[in-house]
Structures are given as structure tokens and as C-alpha cells.
Design a binder for these strands. Structure first.
Length: 998
RNA sequence: GCCUGGGUGGUGGAACUGGUAGACACGCAGGACUUAAAAUCCUGUUCCCGUUAAAGGAGUGCGGGUUCGAUUCCCGCCCCAGGUACCA
């Protein structure tokens, strides 16, 4: 029989399913091995060719480990809450649960046909109530916990209450909000319940906090950063602004130090760890307080400051242990030694002191600036370092070290969420401060004798001795830092401080399709529902849109009240909630899931942690950090044992897509909004060519002086509507919901001829290589590949594409070669008429050499996750055995075992043809490598002159370098290249190379 | 901007610890088999110069450096991709 992959593959897939071949046991005498993949979000576009890359790698590894005698847990599930399903629901009115169910069915079909060895009995779905019951349960544990810095772990909130009752909060060392009041035990006891709860909320590991969101008034909703482009909504192009909103947060910062330390104990790619370290961003420095100079802002601050408790000018004093009575601006700096060089202070435009520091003269300037800053996203603000902007508040502060009066500015390069939302400007040492000072004509003072030309350029050196710096003049960096901190502490104007860049994570979305937060509100304060009321099931709503008043979709649920009385929390949990603990749910068997725990203790004790986790590096600072955080928290509660959940992690590179773009041009005219889609070359010319632009608008009927303001932007378009970069305009019109009256300007430009077909009368799209994702409309799925070549070919081809960890755009150029290889492998077992021809003869030396070369190679390659190189080696081995006309069982049977993790279907079939019991291949024993078969006695030395290879010479490997040198120099051919010269030096590296220097 | 990764023939890539650059494939060209096609097999294929063959020269994004020897190590740039806190 010829190689009939379709028949073979469907038969074996059915066999595995029916016989539960890959079901993992929670009890075994074998050593355990837990191989996990990052589970997919079941997108409507189906599984794309990028997903299987990591899954194939982990499947090869899992199958390899079974052959090596391990009890392997290799599960799969779905991260099934998310924005795209909800977006689809908004457009179609379909319940996201239904579309999600359909998408999962598609994913499952696609996964099944690739032949993965998953234990499907342990599948999880984050959107199913029996799963998210436990996500909500963990949320409740977080709400009921605080972080004790003395024991360095989370503890029940009841222990905090006990402390408050005995000693108040002044001596408590806890992770908390910045604005906690100090109170004594007596004061605590006089608090009402309401007041007590308010205080406790500042300590809970999940708590309410005001944070900034992208608010789109036209859509009446909050947008993800992903959905905002250049300050406008990606859908519809409506303006977006930054707005503050009360939100649930997770106090991940409490764990910053442990998250940092833990990195040293796990086997993860160094760059990934580095990303997490940078994200956590530990910096050792100091807080410095600059007193506000009174009198400059007499109308406001001065009179209200004493009596009015709500006056924000007094807000910063609400720091535990502080008794200062003058308003100040607090900054964090890592270069406290440069305090004498401070010539201005900059606040974030959102800083709460801004409105109180602004003098009447400056009011207009400041208002205009704040207005403009609101329109920019944080990312835009960080990214744009070229343009300097800012506004003067009119107020001044006093430098605590030299008493200098320093102006207070606002600028958008200072971000409210970072540090204290204020920085001290040291233009001589910091490039950004320098640009700011130069632009606004602020003084620049050198503070180190090694700084050169500070008027021209900032110099961040720590070398040399201080100048212009009062009592630290003449000191070195180390001495000065210590001296300044000591002085600031003595003055009560600052203290040493370790700062983390990481912020507490926002834990809420103003959306429908997510886990409901198990919280209701009573008298404006959050309370947990009862544990036995879990899961709090997502209620039905009539529409998946926000309400008219801008509340989240859950506000639409009718009669949805806790005990028919109290408002539930209306936001839902973010995408990362369900994925932050799922590896524990996999540990529970189907039967064990009926028990009232997230996973049984014995199962957790047995599987402990994930031995190998494979997934994309795009999750480096999101999912992987949150998961480590929740894991540490669960450990603090004593529910699990390990500090780190993922022992070893491999990043598979992304299979990128080739995205296509259309170019949308729109502007407002008297009769409303007009939209055009312009072709690629028209877009290029409109962007770069002024004359063309004028001509273009003239043709549209505008006079040169009346050309309207317009927005020209690139927009993703579905790659399935495109062939060779040409857009199917009619199909696009149907799929594009927003601009029904849009017009199309084709390659030929204006005017549009519609009656005559010509070459340029097409709409040409632009393109870019970027990640494959539904939102970028560039998804390619594996079904067609499997239909044409089969799963074994797809599996091997995805590995053959290149190193697992590297990103690459998808292309199918080489797939024929892999397919040919499998057919050759099949032919090795059959004669020309496809009769099985394997014989029981003793293997030759050459055959054994080929076999043991590949055993060694595959072992080495799998252990270091270099799957692409083993595919090449398999090809070489099969080419060699073909050449040798090898048909011997002792060789071929081992070949089947070695290849089976990569191409399991064809190997199962051949295993059966070889006379073995069906299905036993998965648990066969991996062949033992014997180095004796690879011993060589001679090596063909490359002979080079000045590093350039000239010829080769075969020399016995037993010879020592001196003997090799003699032999080489005696060679006629070598003498020809030397042309009579005597080498100055001869380098011989045994078994490697001979190099002569002349 | 900042953090992280990458850049080698026409294409995907190999070269594992500084030791023959281009393994293995794809594609292309030529040939065999065939009435023909598909499939299969054989030969060639980094570039330039030359060409019956040979012999030269250049070459791993760009510019420098260390070394007997650099795709590999160091310094400075350019380009591409991922992340940048509400895509997952």
C-alpha cells in the first residue's frame, strides 16, 4: 500500500481517543512530568498556523518523555473569556457563550486532526461556571487578605484587625495604599463599622482605586489600548480621552521583591527574566520633599489649609507617621546626590496639586496644556521624546539643601502613575531634563568637576568630585549619596527608599464577557457574597453594550441584585484572571472536580509544578507575572507547596502574519462626514506630495484655499479579501460595517472610471509583517495544509521552519520537502510494488552508524528544544538508509520509535506492520545510544593559510599535533600553496583544523 | 522613547564551547522515464571574474576592533519584530 496519510491519520486518532491512550494517572510508580502549553483564546477565526508551533513542540516533548519512562501530564483547555467574542456579540446580538461554544468546537476539531497526545479528560474552560467559581473564590481570598511585611507573606485580614485592636496601625508593617491615616488602638475602637471597612480596604490584596482609562464618549464605553489608534477609536474613528474611574486593583506590588527574587530560582530564558526584572523595575534611591513657597498662591492654599480636611494641599500629609505641617511636593530620585543641581520641579498634568499651585496668571496656560495632554495616551507620551512641551504653574518650591527657590512646571513626560507623579529637574545630568531646561530657558548648573559642556549636553556621570553643591563639595558619588540622605533625614525632608516601577494591576473591565466579581455594595462599600453562593453566574442582558449613562453592560441585567437589595459590582474580571491559576485545575481529574476544592491536595502534592511550560514571549510581563503572583499568594494561604509554578519555560517564537492595509481618508463637510478608501499609491502620494494633495482635493470639488482638515490612516483589512495585494472591493464593502457610504479611490487615482476595465483600476493594499491575530485580520489556518499533506507533514514542517524560539512569517515554500521525506520513510519499509519488505537480518556497520547517529542527535536536540535540526537529521538518516538499501528490522524498528514523537501517525501504522501490538508504541522504550558505532579513525583536516582554507588532508586521529604538522608540511599539494615560503607559525587543533601563518 | 529578540544564497534555515560558511530542504536550470502529464530518479546551483577544466577575488545588515583564525567575542550605527500595564 502507498503512504495513505488520510486513512492512517484518522484511524489512529480514533484509536487514541477510544483507548484513552494519553490519560494521565494521579498515582504512578513512574516519575512525573508535567508538560503544559499556554492555552488558546478560542477566536472566531479558528486555530491559526501559529498556535500549533508551540503545541507540536510540547507534544513532541511529551511523547519523548513517555518513551523515556515518565508519567506525563499533558493537558489542554481554553481561555474562553475575552473581548473579541463580546465585540462579535455587540455586532450580531448573539450571546458570547454560544459563539464561544462554536469556536471551541472548531478549535477542538482542528487540534484533534493534528494528532496531539492531550489528556482531554482534564480540559478546562475559563468561561464555564464550575471553573470561574474558583477564580471568584481566589478573588475572595485576596479580598480577605493583607500582606504582612514582617512575616513577608499574605495573612487573613482578621490578623490585621487584631493588630489594630491592640496597637493601632502605626507599628504595623503592611503593604497598603499611600494615603492611610495613622490611628491608635483606641481610635480604631471608636471607628464605626463603616470607617473600619474603609481603612481595611486600603490593606486588602484586592481593593478599589481610582485609575485612568480610555474613554470614548461617542461609543459610550471604555476602550482597550489595543482599540485606540492615534487618539481615536479603531472602530469608527471617534475621539478618545483619558478619564479617571474607580476600579478594582490587585496589590501585586506587595509581592514585587519575591517576584524579583524568584526569578533566580527558575529555568526560564534569560531575556524573559530580564523583561520581568525591568518591568518590576527595582530602584534604590530616595524620596525628597520640596516645600511649597507660600504667598505666590495666596488666594487658594493658605486660607483653606488649616480647617478644610478635604483640601488636597493637605492630602500628602496623610502619610502614616508624618507630622509635617507645610505643603510639599514629594519626588522619588535615584540620584539624590544631584539635588544641588535641581533647577525646576515638574508635575504630571494630572497631579492633584496642580490646580492648587496654579496662579491666576498662569491658569489659562495650564488649562490649555492639561486639555491637550488628556488626548494623548500614556504610550504616546512616553514615545514622544522629541517634542518638548510643558507649562509653568506660577508657583515655586524650596530646595531643602540650599534654600533655592525653584519653579514648578507641568509636562506630559511625567506620568501620574509612576513614582509620585513628580520629578526633580536636573538638567546637567539628565538628557530629558536638559531638553526641557533648554527649551524653556531654565538654568543649568554643573555639579561634578568631570561634567563637560553641560550647557550643550547633559552628562550623567558619577565620576569625579562635586562642585556647586554645598556641604558635599569635593566628595565622590558614594560619599555624597550617603551624606545627602543623612542630611535630608535630619531635616525631615527626605529618606532613603526602594522604589518599584511596577504598579498595582487593574483588575476590572467595563465589559460583559468576563467573570463577575463576587462583590455587592452596601452604603457605598464593597462586601463579598457568601462563599456557598459561588459561582456568581453571569446574568443575561438584552444588549452587550454599555447603558446610556455609561455604565457597564451588567447594569442592563434585570432584577440582578444581591438579596434583591444590594447592587452587585458591575465590571467583570480582566482577561488574565482565569489564566492565573489554571495549571492547578488540570491536576484534578474529572471525578475529583466534583469535590469542593479547586484541586485535591493529593493531586497537588503529586504533580507539584509544571516541569515544562511552552508559550509566546508576548506574555512575558502579563500572564507570566500575574500567574507567579497568584501562585505565591496561594502558597501563603498554605493551599499549595511551591513558590514558583513553572520550573522551566520555553518561548516559542511567533508565527507572524502578513497583514494587509486599506487607507481611510475622512473629513467633515457641511453635509456630514465623508469617507474615502484610497489605494496604496494614492495614499503614498497624499502623504508625501503637496501638489498631488491639492490636485486631489480640487478634483473632489474643493477650492485650493478651502481644503478641509482630514485624517488619513491605515486600517487592517482581512487577508482573505485580498489576492496578490489586490482588494476585492465588493466583498470588502459587504464586510465593512462602519462606512456604508464610503467611496473608493483606485490605483489610477481620481476621477474614478467605473465603465472601463484597465490595469490600474484596482485597489492595491499595503502590507506589513506582524503578529497573527484576528484583530489584524491576517489569520491563516492549518486545515488546508492537513487536507493536502496530512498532520504528520504539518507537524514536521512547522518544526522544520526554523528554531522554535525564533519568530518568522508564515510561508509554505518548503512543505513539499517534508512530505517527500515521509513518503521516502514509508518506502524504506516497502518494495516498488508497495509490499512490506522488512527482513530479520543482522545490521551492517554502516547501518548501525546511521541509526546511532540519529539516536544521539535526537536526544541532544530534544533536550535543548532544537526540533528543526532533528528534522534535517531524520532526512539525512533516511537518505543514508535508502542509499544502503536497508530493510532490516533491527534498524527500522528503532527508527520508528525515534521518529514517533514527531510523526506519530505514520509511525503507529509502521509499528503495527512490524508486528507489534497496536497502541504500544506510545509507551515503548527509546533506543539506547551506543557510541562505539560512531568511532572514526581518521579526519579530513582542512589546511588553511592565514585562515583561508586551501585544501583537505586525511590524517589518522591517533596522531598528535606535532606529527600532524610534520605530515602536512611534507605534503606535495601543501608545498604548492606555500610556494617555497616557510610558515612563521603552524597551528594544529586536533580533530579540527590546521592553520599556517606566512 | 524604554525593555527584549532578530538580520547568513533567489527562499526557510545549518554551523552546539572562536576552528572547512551555506548542512538539510524549497525554488530554479538541465537530463532520464512517459504518447503526454503527475509522481519518481540523476546532475548543477553564494556572488563576481574566467570558463573545457583550472586558478583568482569578495562574502554572514553597516562601520570599526580583539585573534593565527570571527556568523560566533567587544564598541558604535541601521533596519525588522514582540512588549510597554483594558488584545490574549
Amino acid at each position: 500500500m502507498d503512504y495513505q496519510f488520510k486513512k492512517i491519520e484518522s484511524e489512529w486518532q480514533q484509536f487514541w481517543a477510544e483507548n484513552n491512550t494519553f490519560k494521565a494517572e494521579n498515582h504512578s510508580t513512574k516519575p512525573k512530568y508535567y508538560v503544559m502549553d499556554m492555552f488558546p483564546y478560542p477566536s472566531g477565526a479558528g486555530l491559526h498556523v501559529g498556535h500549533p508551533l508551540g503545541y507540536i513542540a510540547s507534544d513532541i516533548f511529551a511523547r519523548y518523555k513517555r518513551l523515556k519512562g515518565f508519567n506525563v501530564l499533558h493537558p489542554m483547555g481554553y481561555d474562553s473569556f475575552g473581548l473579541p467574542a463580546e465585540q462579535y456579540a455587540i455586532q450580531t446580538g448573539q450571546h458570547p457563550a454560544i459563539t464561544t461554544e462554536q469556536n471551541i468546537a472548531t478549535y477542538r476539531r482542528q487540534l484533534d486532526q493534528i494528532g496531539f497526545s492531550f489528556d482531554w479528560s482534564r480540559e478546562v474552560r475559563t468561561s464555564s461556571p464550575d471553573y470561574y467559581k474558583w477564580t471568584q473564590w481566589i478573588f475572595m481570598q485576596l479580598f480577605n487578605s493583607w500582606y504582612n511585611r514582617e512575616t513577608d507573606k499574605a495573612e487573613p485580614i482578621s490578623t490585621l484587625i487584631q493588630k489594630f485592636e491592640v496597637e493601632g496601625n502605626t507599628s504595623v508593617k503592611a503593604a497598603s495604599d499611600d494615603d492611610v491615616l495613622s490611628f491608635s488602638a483606641e481610635e480604631w475602637l471608636t471607628f464605626t463599622d463603616q470607617e473600619k471597612q474603609e481603612q481595611l480596604l486600603k490593606y486588602r490584596l484586592t481593593y478599589l482605586r481610582e485609575s485612568t482609562v480610555n474613554w470614548c464618549a461617542a461609543l459610550g464605553t471604555v476602550l482597550a489600548n489595543d482599540e485606540v489608534k492615534d487618539g481615536f477609536s479603531e472602530r469608527g474613528g471617534y475621539p478618545v480621552e483619558q478619564k479617571k474611574m474607580m476600579q478594582w486593583s490587585m496589590r501585586i506590588t506587595a509581592y514585587a521583591e519575591r517576584l524579583l527574587q524568584g526569578l533566580d530560582t527558575i529555568d526560564w530564558p534569560e531575556p524573559l527574566k530580564e523583561m520581568q526584572r525591568n518591568w518590576i523595575g527595582k530602584s534604590v534611591g530616595a524620596m525628597v520633599r520640596f516645600k511649597v513657597e507660600r504667598g505666590e498662591n495666596k488666594e487658594r492654599g493658605a486660607e483653606s489649609e488649616k480647617s478644610d480636611n478635604a483640601n488636597p494641599l493637605s492630602a500628602p500629609f496623610l502619610v502614616a507617621g508624618s507630622s509635617l505641617s507645610t505643603p510639599f511636593i514629594e519626588v522619588f530620585t535615584t540620584r539624590v546626590d544631584t539635588t544641588f543641581g535641581v533647577t525646576f520641579v515638574v508635575l504630571a498634568p494630572e497631579h492633584e496639586l496642580v490646580k492648587h499651585l496654579t496662579t491666576p496668571d498662569q491658569q489659562a496656560d495650564i488649562d490649555a496644556y492639561i486639555d491637550q495632554a488628556k488626548k494623548k495616551s500614556e504610550l504616546d507620551r512616553m514615545a514622544d521624546t522629541k517634542t518638548v512641551s510643558g507649562a509653568f504653574t506660577g508657583s515655586y518650591v524650596i530646595n531643602p539643601l540650599n534654600g533655592n527657590k525653584i519653579p514648578v512646571w507641568i509636562a506630559d513626560y511625567v506620568l501620574a502613575g509612576y513614582g509620585t507623579g513628580a520629578v526633580m529637574g536636573v538638567p546637567s545630568g539628565d538628557a530629558r531634563d536638559h531638553r526641557f531646561a533648554t527649551h524653556f530657558n531654565l538654568p543649568i548648573v554643573a555639579i561634578l568637576d568631570t561634567q563637560k559642556e553641560v550647557l550643550k549636553e547633559a552628562d550623567a556621570t558619577k565620576e569625579g568630585h562635586y562642585i556647586n553643591s554645598g556641604f558635599i563639595n569635593g566628595m565622590t558619588y558614594k560619599e555624597a549619596t550617603a551624606a545627602v540622605i543623612a542630611k535630608l533625614e535630619a531635616l525631615g525632608a527626605g529618606k532613603a527608599k526602594i522604589n518599584y516601577r511596577q504598579r498595582d494591576a487593574i483588575f476590572g473591565r467595563q465589559r460583559y464577557w468576563g467573570e463577575p466579581v463576587p462583590v455587592y455594595f452596601k452604603d457605598g462599600l464593597p462586601h463579598l457574597i457568601d462563599e456557598n453562593e459561588l459561582p456568581l453566574v453571569l446574568p443575561e442582558v438584552d444588549k452587550y453594550l454599555p447603558t446610556e449613562s455609561g455604565e457597564p453592560p451588567l447594569a442592563r441585567a434585570e432584577n440582578w441584585k444581591y438579596q434583591n437589595e444590594f447592587e452587585y459590582e458591575l465590571s467583570t474580571m480582566p482577561g488574565w484572571a482565569g489564566s492565573s491559576w489554571y495549571w492547578y485545575r488540570y491536576m484534578a481529574t474529572k471525578e475529583e472536580r466534583a469535590e469542593n476544592v479547586f484541586a485535591p491536595k493529593e493531586a497537588i502534592d503529586y504533580w507539584k509544578d509544571v516541569d515544562l511550560y511552552i508559550g509566546g514571549s508576548e506574555h512575558a510581563t502579563g500572564h507570566l507575572l500575574y500567574s507567579r503572583f497568584w501562585n505565591k499568594f496561594l502558597k501563603d494561604l498554605g493551599l499549595i507547596e511551591v513558590e514558583e509554578p513553572f520550573k522551566k519555560l520555553i518561548n516559542q517564537g511567533m508565527i507572524q502574519g502578513r497583514s494587509s492595509f486599506v487607507y481611510r481618508l475622512f473629513f467633515d463637510i457641511n453635509s456630514g462626514r465623508q469617507t474615502y478608501f484610497v489605494s496604496k499609491s494614492v495614499y503614498d502620494k497624499l502623504s508625501n506630495d503637496r501638489e498631488y494633495r491639492v490636485d486631489f482635493f480640487t478634483k473632489l470639488g474643493f477650492r485650493e484655499e478651502d481644503i478641509p482638515d482630514y485624517i488619513l490612516s491605515a486600517q487592517h483589512v482581512d487577508v482573505n479579501l485580498i489576492s496578490n495585494d489586490i482588494l476585492d472591493v465588493e466583498a470588502f464593502k459587504i464586510s465593512n460595517k462602519v462606512d456604508t457610504n464610503a467611496q473608493f479611490v483606485l490605483e489610477c487615482g481620481l476621477p474614478i472610471f467605473s465603465f472601463e476595465k484597465r490595469l490600474n483600476e484596482v485597489y492595491r493594499c499595503g502590507h506589513e509583517v506582524e503578529k497573527m491575530s484576528k484583530s489584524k485580520f491576517n489569520v491563516v489556518n492549518p486545515d488546508e495544509m492537513i487536507e493536502r499533506y496530512g498532520a504528520d507533514t504539518l507537524r514536521m514542517y512547522e518544526m522544520f521552519l526554523g528554531p522554535l524560539e525564533q519568530s518568522k512569517p508564515w510561508n509554505t515554500n518548503g512543505i513539499e520537502g517534508v512530505f517527500k521525506f515521509l513518503r521516502k520513510f514509508w518506502k524504506l519499509f516497502h518494495d516498488d510494488n508497495f509490499n512490506f519488505r522488512v527482513i530479520n537480518e543482522a545490521a551492517s556497520k554502516a547501518e548501525l552508524k546511521s541509526l546511532h547517529k540519529i539516536i544521539k542527535k535526537v536526544e541532544d536536540d530534544v533536550e535543548r528544544f532544537s526540533f528543526n535540526t532533528s528534522v534535517s537529521s531524520f532526512m539525512i538518516a533516511v537518505n543514508e538508509l535508502m542509499e544502503l538499501k536497508c530493510a532490516k528490522r533491527s534498524i527500522l524498528q528503532d527508527m520508528v520509535i525515534i521518529l514517533s514523537p514527531y510523526a506519530p501517525h505514520i509511525c503507529e501504522e509502521l509499528w503495527k506492520l512490524l508486528g507489534n501490538e497496536a497502541g504500544t508504541l506510545s509507551y515503548a522504550e527509546f533506543p539506547k545510544f551506543n557510541p562505539e558505532f560512531l568511532v572514526e579513525d581518521a579526519f579530513s583536516y582542512p589546511i588553511s593559510i592565514n585562515g583561508k582554507t586551501k585544501t583537505n588532508l586525511s590524517i589518522p586521529l591517533s596522531l598528535e599535533p606535532k606529527e600532524v604538522e610534520t605530515l602536512v608540511l611534507a605534503d606535495e599539494n601543501v608545498q604548492k600553496y606555500l610556494a617555497g615560503q616557510t610558515p612563521k607559525k603552524v597551528i594544529v587543533v586536533k580533530g579540527r583544523i590546521v592553520n599556517m601563518v606566512v
